Amino acid sequence: MKDSALGHRGVRKALAALLALLVATILVGFFWLPQVKPDFTAGGLWDAICRIAGVPSTWSTELKMDDPQASRVSMVAGLQGTAGGDVGRGGTLALRCTMCHGARGVSSSDVPNLAGQYAEVVYKQLVDYKNGQRRHVLMQALASGLSEQDIRDLSAFYAQLPRPSPAPAPTPVPRLVTVGDPLRNIAPCASCHGGIDKKPGSPWLEGMSHAYLSTQLQQFASGVRRNDTLQAMRNIARQMTPEEIEAVARYYSVLAIVGSAGSAPAR
Results as ranks from 00 to 15, higher is better:
Trp46Cys: 00
Tyr129Ile: 06
Gly10Trp: 10
Ser57Lys: 11
Ser60Pro: 08
Leu15Thr: 13
Val55Ala: 04
Leu27Asn: 06
Gly116Asn: 06
Asp86Val: 05
Leu126Gln: 03
Ser109Leu: 15
Gln80Asn: 04
Val111Asn: 09
Val36Pro: 15
Arg9Met: 13
Tyr123Ile: 06
Val111Ile: 10
Met1Arg: 05
His136Pro: 03
Phe30Glu: 10
Tyr129Met: 06
Lys124Ser: 01
Leu45Tyr: 09
Lys124Gln: 05
His136Ile: 05
Arg12Leu: 15
Lys37Ala: 11
Ile49Gly: 05
Ala20Arg: 11
Phe30Cys: 12
Ala115Trp: 00
Leu22Met: 12
Asp47Cys: 06
Leu138Thr: 13
Gln125Ile: 12
Ala115Val: 01
Trp46Val: 14
Tyr123Ser: 00
Ala103Leu: 10
Gly90Gln: 02
Ile49Asn: 03
Val121Glu: 03
Gly10Ile: 07
Leu22His: 15
Gly78Cys: 01
Ser4Gln: 11
Val76Trp: 00
Leu21Thr: 12
Pro112Thr: 05
Val11Pro: 00
Val76Tyr: 00
Gln125Tyr: 08
Pro34Thr: 03
Ala115Leu: 04
Leu63Lys: 14
Cys50Leu: 01
Leu63Asn: 15
Gly43His: 07
Leu138Val: 15
Ala14Ser: 10
Gly54Asp: 05
Leu126Lys: 07
Glu148Thr: 08
Val28Asn: 09
Val137Phe: 09
His101Val: 01
Val55Asn: 03
Gln125Val: 14
Leu93Thr: 04
Gln35Ile: 08
Asp47Trp: 10
Gly102Glu: 03
Asp39Arg: 09
Met139Arg: 05
Phe40Asp: 09
Asp67Gly: 07
Cys97Pro: 05
Gly85Met: 02
Gln133Val: 00
Ala24Leu: 15
Leu45Gly: 07
Glu148Pro: 04
Ser74Thr: 04
Arg9Leu: 14
Tyr129Glu: 02
Leu63Ile: 15
Ala70Gly: 09
Gly54Tyr: 07
Gly7Glu: 03
Ala103His: 07
Gln125Trp: 04
Val23His: 08
Arg12Met: 12
Gly10Met: 13
Ala20Phe: 09
Tyr123Glu: 03
Ala42Asp: 14
Gly43Lys: 10
Asp39Ser: 11
Trp32Gln: 09
His101Glu: 01
Leu45Gln: 08
Lys64Cys: 10
Gly145Ser: 02
Gly145Phe: 00
Ser108Glu: 14
Asn131His: 03
Leu126Pro: 04
Leu22Arg: 15
Ala5Cys: 12
Arg72His: 06
Trp59Phe: 14
Gln80Arg: 11
Leu15Gln: 14
Gly43Tyr: 07
Glu148Trp: 00
His101Met: 07
Leu15Trp: 12
Gln125Leu: 05
Leu63Gly: 10
Leu33Phe: 13
Glu148Ile: 02
Gly102Lys: 02
Val127Asn: 04
Leu6Cys: 07
Lys130Ser: 01
Gly88Asp: 10
Val11Glu: 04
Asp47Ala: 11
Ala17Cys: 10
Gln69Ala: 13
Ser74Ala: 13
Trp46Glu: 11
Val106Met: 03
Leu45Ala: 12
Lys13Val: 12
Tyr129Lys: 05
Trp46Asp: 05
Ala48Trp: 10
Gly78Phe: 02
Ala83Phe: 00
Cys97Leu: 05
Val11Phe: 08
Leu27Ser: 09
Pro68Lys: 01
Leu6Glu: 07
Gly54Phe: 02
Trp32Asn: 09
Gly90Lys: 06
Asp66Trp: 14
Arg89Pro: 12
Ser4Lys: 12
Gln35Trp: 11
Leu15Phe: 09
Arg72Leu: 08
Phe40Met: 06
Arg134His: 04
